[in-house]
Amino acid sequence: MDGQALVQAIGKPTGAKSFGDLADVFNASVFSHFNEHCSRVDVVFDRYRITSIKSGTRERREGRARSIRRKIDSREIPLPANWKQFMDLPENKANLTKFLSDQMMLEAKKSRPTCELITAGGFEEVTKVASSQGSDVEQLQSSHEEADTRIILHAKAAYMDGYERIIVSCRDTDVLVILTHAAGQLSGELWMRTGTRQERRYVAVHDIQLTPTMQRNILVYHAVTGCDTVSQPSGHGKKTTWKVFQQHGALLDDL
């Protein structure tokens, strides 16, 4: 699960007054996935580095309005009046993800002793991973900046641990592309849960049919035809270039 996407979807909950209230809403959404068919949930967050190839993209998305800094060191800290200004500051996002990661662990250990929650990316230590059941999660330690690629790492680890059905909860096209590329190394039943609460969709990644060449090179194709850090070629969108990729995908082998 993409933790940052969930933070954005929740926003500033109606009636919530403190960051503790926000954490309760966040936890309720995460723990709602636990049921008789799901005993493990992984939540991963983006890292917010001062120097990042995505800095320009984030500035365009968030604008340049004056942001406010608020340190979250307890559940009682009141939520800011202007949520957007708060979230526009990377230091606030990093502080919030650490707070939510800690709160998730505390609540999971207390109220979900038979289920396992694993989270990474939100702690101060770049490579730290935590399991509510104290499992050995050393193989999940990484310095990935993006939750997009951390998700694949966690999905692979779950597959290696014997999970036969993996559901990735995310609304990012990049993640779908990466999952499609890595599908052969993951569980035989791989789904992507996307859409909104009102209109939920499940994409059967395991049923996506690509030639070996296309599956091998789809990451390169997606990058050079437009992604978060690369502009698309002028006048050539995904639909147009996809037709060429289907016929000449092997030309990307060396990239």
Rank of each mutant, 00 (worst) to 15 (best):
M1C: 00
D2W: 05
G11E: 11
A16M: 06
D24I: 04
V25F: 10
S32V: 05
F34C: 01
F34A: 00
E36K: 09
C38A: 14
S39M: 05
V43R: 03
V44W: 14
V44L: 09
F45N: 02
R49H: 10
I50P: 07
I50N: 08
T51S: 12
K54A: 05
K54R: 14
G56A: 09
R58C: 01
R60H: 08
R60A: 13
R61Y: 03
R61T: 04
R61L: 00
R64I: 07
R64V: 13
A65I: 07
A65Y: 09
A65C: 03
S67C: 11
I68Q: 04
R75N: 11
E76A: 14
P80I: 01
A81M: 14
N82H: 08
N82M: 04
Q85Y: 10
D88F: 03
P90T: 03
N92T: 03
N92M: 02
K93M: 07
A94D: 08
K98V: 08
F99K: 04
M104F: 06
M105C: 09
A108S: 07
S111Y: 12
T114G: 06
E116A: 02
A120W: 01
A120T: 01
A120I: 03
G121Y: 00
E124V: 13
K128A: 11
S131E: 05
Q133F: 09
G134V: 08
E138M: 13
Q139V: 09
L140I: 09
S143V: 09
H144C: 07
E145F: 04
A147I: 01
T149F: 12
L153W: 11
A157Q: 13
A158V: 10
Y159A: 12
Y159G: 11
Y159V: 10
Y163V: 15
I166V: 07
S169N: 11
C170K: 04
D172M: 12
T173Y: 12
D174N: 07
D174M: 06
D174Y: 05
L176H: 13
V177R: 13
I178C: 06
L179F: 15
S187V: 02
G188P: 12
G188Q: 15
G188S: 13
R193S: 14
R193I: 04
T194V: 09
Y202P: 10
Y202N: 15
V203C: 06
V205W: 07
V205R: 01
D207K: 14
Q209V: 06
T211R: 12
Q215K: 13
R216S: 08
N217Y: 05
I218Q: 09
L219D: 02
Y221Q: 04
Y221I: 00
H222G: 07
A223P: 03
V224Q: 05
T225P: 07
G226N: 04
T229E: 05
T229I: 15
V230Q: 11
V230T: 12
Q232H: 07
P233N: 04
P233R: 01
S234Y: 09
W242N: 02
F245N: 00
F245L: 01
F245W: 05
Q247Y: 10
G249L: 12
L251C: 12
L251A: 13
L252V: 07
D253E: 15
D254H: 15
D254N: 12
D254F: 14
L255D: 02
